[in-house]
């Protein structure tokens, strides 16, 4: 029976520079931040990051880890515009592929189902085609609504991932996991869109399988071990993003993080205090002592 438990640094050791990495959560909610911090501490670079973006995207951009960003938005929720992401965009530091939020879902779904694209109306007429010149349309082989020629739709390409990182509330050591908040977001799709061997899930608590549904119900068991290669126990691992019902967003910390985008000095100070640390345990001790 496979015990998939590992540390954040074990996960990073399985990643390579240049990889395409999907990051779960949504905005500043249930982000696998302990894994993101481990990437920031590592030598990894030139990553393509695929995310419904929040501080994961901002941190990785500010730390110079991102070559390309695939996104529909990047937001800190209570702070609508992510300042580090804006800085990266406005300096031309990262290349981008920008989609509608729903197109993004279809891209992950296509990858998960191992088809090259999924058809959709979404994107027609918009600047999605200017933002991603490689985007193509596909003509339906079936008659149109009026019996005429088939409709020409957007062929949303599969967003295939080399690796996926997500954070859940509970997991067992084999990779089954439960979310306890109001929304599963797209974490399960992220895992299914990623190559076998690159699917990593951190969780607030690793519990015996029999206790997985103890704090929720059977519908909270959204991720199964078929979808996971490595499990990391990461208490407060989504900090500073929210991970309800375990904890809310740390708004004060997030404000400090956002403020660090103002000057190079402010960023250097933030980075020294919160990122250039030996490990996640040190970070969590410092957070607890705030």
């Amino acid at each position: 029976m496979a015990d998939k438990r590992m540390s954040e640094d074990d996960v990073v050791a399985r990643l390579r520079s240049g990889m395409t990495i999907g990051i779960g959560g949504w905005g500043s909610r249930r982000k696998p931040m302990s894994l993101v911090r481990a990437i920031v501490r590592s030598e990894l670079r030139d990553l393509t990051v695929v995310s419904y973006g929040g501080p994961d995207v901002g941190l990785l951009c500010a730390a110079g880890k991102v070559r390309k960003l695939v996104f529909a938005f990047v937001s800190l929720d209570s702070i609508p515009l992510e300042p580090h992401f804006r800085k990266a965009r406005q300096s031309g530091q990262v290349t981008t592929e920008e989609y509608d939020e729903g197109q993004f879902l279809l891209g992950l779904q296509a990858a998960a189902w191992r088809v090259p694209f999924l058809p959709t109306r979404v994107g027609l007429g918009s600047d999605v085609f200017r933002l991603d010149p490689s985007l193509r349309t596909v003509t339906s082989p079936y008659p149109g609504p009026d019996g005429g020629p088939g409709e020409e739709l957007v062929a949303m390409p599969a967003l295939e991932l080399d690796a996926a990182l997500v954070h859940y509330n509970r997991a067992d050591e084999r990779g089954n996991a439960a979310y306890l908040g109001p929304d599963p977001y797209f974490d399960d799709l992220m895992l299914e869109a990623a190559a076998t061997g690159g699917r990593f899930l951190s969780a607030e608590r690793i519990v015996p399988t029999a206790e997985l549904a103890a704090d929720g119900c059977r519908h909270s068991l959204k991720v199964s071990r078929l979808m996971v290669d490595g499990v990391v126990e990461a208490r407060n691992g989504a900090h500073p993003t929210s991970c309800v019902p375990d904890y809310e967003r740390d708004e004060a910390f997030q404000k400090e993080y956002a403020g660090s985008a103002r000057t190079d000095e402010a960023w250097a100070e933030f980075s020294a205090a919160w990122l250039e640390l030996p490990d996640e345990a040190t970070y969590q001790r410092k957070v607890a002592a705030r």
Binding site: Q90, T96, E101, D127
Partner: peptide, 22 residues
């Protein structure tokens, strides 16, 4: 600016392309 390097980055496309066409 231009698409590769906007002068002011705002929200991103969010759901607007899909909303307006559906």
């Amino acid at each position: 600016g231009d698409l590769a390097q906007p002068k002011v980055q705002l929200l991103g496309l969010r759901g607007a392309p899909g909303n307006t066409i559906c």
